[in-house]
Design a protein around this nucleic acid. Structure first.
Lengths: 206, 206
DNA sequence: GAGAGAATCACCCGAAAGGGGGATTTTAAT
DNA sequence: ATTAAAATCCCCCTTTCGGGTGATTCTCTC
């Protein structure tokens, strides 16, 4: 008997998953919470085997909640839930101890398979989510790390400030700002401001 | 008795809304479809009062489906369904005859209110969705129209080409390219290339 | 056929960006 | 203590950008 608990702020999703699971013989509906604190409240006196968790919730982030739950109750398998393929979040969830990730538009069969897989200690990915994760890693790991200063200056360039203006704003020499700017161009391998800003916006660097 | 039909490709959402509505005395569950064609199939021999419709579906777009349903069966009130506040889609749905828009993370009360409102010929918006629509209109309708040439040159600037390079590429005088570039800055009310490209990418002008 | 935009081309000029070349200091990690 | 990386600063030079101010041609609309 697998006890399943769900944390999601969407009543529709809770009801939907409840409905999909209610006739399953080997699954027991442990309950639900609509935010992080009521989730904590439940686990003080109760437990569950698999925890379905929305990644985007008001108040505490699903990623953060995932981390805490995993530290407090390492025996619980966490399955991330989301509507869209968000590679970035998938990666963060996995880094914070999730055992898998499933899209809310999955079929009943996929949902059951996911629950069984993670309950046995396995890792499960919705086909599409797996693709998203791969794409994310491909597109982002090969992106060089920017230093905090570089990110700061990149943001100011994107705001439309010139080197002298940025220098005045953050109390630096215009020469320094120019150096950082040139480093940005070199690191990100772009020719000029136009392609720099385009890359920055598209890769959500700012 | 309000007959409610739902078109959505997410089983979870269908189940969830069904579950939320099943004990309502004045609401009758007409059925559901998971794509546009099975929706058409249903309405050949049946009808409904309120049609809940996801905006993003595989195959035919919700916006497109909304338009067709509204033309074929003008007596049916359509209520758009989406997970996120997508001002652009909200606007398109309304232009295509929807009577309102509700977020999937709405409460049961809000959902019922929405159904009743549109069934009486009214217009309903989730509080957040209304905000999103306003924001969208504010941010997008005041965006000046760009001529085809300007769009072309904007795209090339975003690719990282300089005026002389663009001139050579599309067989124009560098002066002309420069004129277009200056017009872009003026029309979009930005100071320099950095803010131009940022705006262009964020507003999906390229 | 008058007028409005779009598209084209032209010049002046100062400011900013970008390609080099250096340098020192601070900070973090080993 | 050593090393690496980040952060700071400086100057050379050429190209590009951006502001201002013009112009002509074409096309479409009213």
């Amino acid at each position: 008997m697998i006890r399943v608990f769900i944390v999601d702020d969407h009543p529709v999703v809770i009801e939907g998953i409840h409905s999909l699971l209610q006739n399953e013989k080997d699954i027991e509906w442990a309950g639900h919470a609509m935010n992080a604190s009521s989730c904590f409240g439940y686990f003080v006196n109760n437990t569950a085997d698999v925890l379905l968790m929305d990644i985007s919730m008001p108040g505490m982030d699903g990623v953060e909640l995932c981390k805490i739950m995993n530290e407090k109750y390492p025996g619980i398998f966490i399955l991330g839930l989301s509507t869209f393929n968000q590679g970035l979040y998938i990666k963060k969830m996995m880094e914070n101890g999730a055992s898998g990730y499933i899209l809310k538009n999955s079929s009943k069969e996929e949902l059951l398979k996911a629950i069984h897989t993670v309950n046995n200690g396995g890792i499960f990915f919705s086909g599409e989510a797996g693709e998203a994760l791969k794409e994310y890693q491909k597109s982002s790991t090969q992106l060089p790390e920017l230093s905090p200063r570089e990110k700061e200056i990149l943001a100011l360039i994107a705001e439309g400030f010139t080197n002298p203006q940025i220098a005045e704003k953050i109390f630096l020499s215009p020469f320094t700002v120019d150096s950082h700017r040139k480093n940005l161009l070199a690191k990100l391998n772009v020719k000029n401001t136009a392609s720099l800003i385009r890359l920055a916006v598209e890769k959500k660097l700012i």
